[in-house]
């Protein structure tokens, strides 16, 4: 049962889905009228920039955090390893929206106490929550990459007289980062989707701007359809990038 669809076949399928949705739910052409105006698209585009900005900050910031988590868990002393395991597993087992909401409460209290307006804003809570969550997930991806390297790499490095730290830094980590690159890009796609949760605590990103449009125009189906298609295109492109990276870096079955 070999069923790996070609990209154009999957895209035809997405086309069928995108055609069936308006037909099944009697979407009205007239209700798509706001999307004929440039100002609507400009409004959405600014939201998309915020979505991408939060995602980029979270993914870049998550790399040092992931490195810390992975190293602490892989070879840290016990007093560091166990707290990190509890923290990483805990963060991954909690709903991201709950984490965001809690951080929003704590950070806005902290920001008021310190007199820092920037910290009280939902943007800060959204980015910190995404950063922590992505750090935990990427930390595990990096640790898996370190563990997936053949033992011979360690043995060769150590027998050349490198210390543990040198072996890790010069031999293991460069290879592990290569292996962790495709999951990192996949995690970026997840971030783009997860940023929409920030809308609930008041981050005016892409999805929230869609809500603002449909509350004015009273066309929730049509607007959410358009917004979802925007998310689809971004993440579809990122997915193909993951495919290319996996093929280029040479760890894929086909």
């Amino acid at each position: 049962m070999q069923v790996q669809e070609r990209p154009w076949q999957t895209l035809v399928g997405v086309g069928i889905v995108l055609l069936l949705l308006p037909l099944a739910f009697h979407m009205k052409a007239a209700r798509f009228a706001p999307f004929l105006e440039l100002s609507t698209w400009r409004f959405l585009f600014l939201g998309l920039l915020l979505t991408l900005e939060a995602s980029v900050i979270a993914i870049l910031g998550s790399i040092p955090l992931a490195l810390f988590f992975a190293l602490a868990r892989h070879s840290g002393p016990f007093w560091l390893r166990y707290p990190v395991i509890v923290l990483v597993e805990g963060i991954r087992a909690l709903p991201l929206l709950g984490l965001m909401f809690y951080l929003f409460l704590r950070l806005s209290a902290l920001g008021r106490a310190l007199g820092l307006a920037a910290v009280t804003r939902p943007d800060a809570a959204v980015i910190v929550a995404l950063w922590l969550y992505t750090g935990a997930v990427n930390g595990e991806a990096l640790r898996a990459a370190i563990l997936s390297l053949p033992r011979g790499q360690w043995e060769a490095a150590r027998s050349l007289g490198l210390t543990y730290g040198q072996a890790m830094r010069l031999v293991i980590l460069p290879q592990a980062f290569r292996r962790a690159l495709p999951p990192l890009v996949a995690q970026f796609a997840t971030l783009v989707k997860d940023t929409s949760l920030g809308a609930i605590i008041g981050f005016i990103e892409l999805y929230r701007r869609g809500v603002i449009i449909f509350q004015g125009e009273r066309n929730p189906m049509e607007t959410l359809y358009v917004v979802s298609v925007i998310y689809f295109f971004i993440n579809y492109a990122l997915g193909r990038l993951v495919d290319i990276l996996e093929r280029r870096l040479g760890f894929r079955r086909g």
């Binding site: 895209l11 889905v17 989707k193 979802s228």
Partner: peptide
């Protein structure tokens, strides 16, 4: 065409956030 539809369904929903689906 059924295979393509199914592949498209999977690809579409995996690439969009849950929140707009719920609000839809």
């Amino acid at each position: 065409p059924l295979r393509w539809f199914a592949a498209g369904y999977v690809e579409f929903f995996r690439d969009i956030p849950l929140l707009p689906v719920l609000v839809f």
